[in-house]
Amino acid sequence: MGTTITLDLADDLSPARLRELADDVFTWMHEVDARFSTYQSDSEVCRFDRGEVLLSEASADLRFVLEACADLWGVTDGFFDAYATGGLDPSGYVKGWAAQVASDRLLAAGAANHCVNAGGDVRVRGFSPTGEPWRIGIRHPWDEMATCLVLAGTDLAVATSGVYERGRHVQDPRRGAPATGLRSVTVVGSDLGVADAYATAALAMGAAGIGWLDRLTDHTYAVVTDDARQFHSAALPQTA
């Protein structure tokens, strides 16, 4: 997926069990990368895009992701578009979804206190090793060594989409051009795949994305505009 995955396990388990849980997470992430990478020509998503794999032949994971992306296209009025760049690229959903699945599996396996971080898309549950709620720093969009806000909680899915690392890589599907107006969008919810897609969609909308985010009833957000203004939900789980 072209990013770094980190994992924090905070349960009082044996070293062997912690290692087993971590191995399961990273094995899953490698499976997702092999299946959905747009950088590897032999990945299933690339072969499907070229017509070498029929929908009836696709894996259950690929069919699930394609259906989720179609639903998200409708919910976002077309601004979350897995075909925005011409070919199939569901990365704006897959990264968050993969981390969400990893977190769900950890919870089911008895690891109730953990943090899965997929390149800045973060799923936390329970408490940190200090016994306090997890603290999640949101990178300052002009200073990679600073944060612009810090969130805290015990059950949060936090996804950020921005232009400060990969440039204006998110397309405005209405104009067929790179999206402008917003430099960073963070969305907080309960499902990291959905939060990831919503952050991507809002970035694609540009300034209009702020109003769209404000109308969501089950997510909170924080936005930094191209001209350095910041907007956020009143209920955003901030901490000092």
Rank of each mutant, 00 (worst) to 15 (best):
Q230F: 04
T217Y: 05
E165V: 13
A207W: 02
V163T: 15
A195T: 04
A195R: 03
G167I: 11
H219A: 04
T180G: 10
S184A: 15
D172N: 15
R183P: 11
V224I: 15
G189E: 01
G211K: 07
A208R: 09
G162H: 15
G206D: 06
V224E: 03
Q230C: 06
G209P: 02
A222R: 10
Y198V: 12
D226M: 07
A208Q: 11
A197T: 07
T186M: 05
L182K: 09
V170E: 03
H232T: 01
R229G: 07
A228E: 14
A228P: 01
L213S: 03
S233W: 03
A179H: 12
H232V: 00
A201N: 10
V194H: 02
T220A: 11
G167Y: 10
A228L: 11
V187K: 06
A202Q: 10
A177D: 11
L182Y: 09
L216K: 03
G189I: 01
E165A: 14
A197I: 00
V194D: 02
S190P: 00
T225Q: 11
R229A: 15
A202Y: 11
I210G: 03
V188D: 04
D218Q: 14
A228Y: 07
L203K: 11
S233I: 00
A228H: 13
L216S: 06
D191G: 01
R166W: 12
L216T: 04
L192T: 00
T180E: 15
F231H: 14
V187A: 02
G167V: 08
A204M: 14
G211F: 05
A234M: 00
H219Y: 14
D172Y: 07
A199C: 07
Q230W: 03
D226E: 15
H169N: 07
R175I: 08
S233M: 05
R183G: 15
L203G: 10
A235F: 06
A177C: 06
W212V: 05
G167T: 06
A204S: 15
L216Y: 04
P237N: 09
P173G: 04
A201S: 12
G167A: 10
S190M: 02
D227Y: 02
A204Y: 14
G211N: 09
V187N: 08
S184Y: 09
G189D: 01
T186W: 08
M205A: 08
V194L: 10
A240Y: 01
V223C: 12
A235D: 15
D172G: 05
G189P: 00
S184W: 06
Q171R: 11
G211E: 08
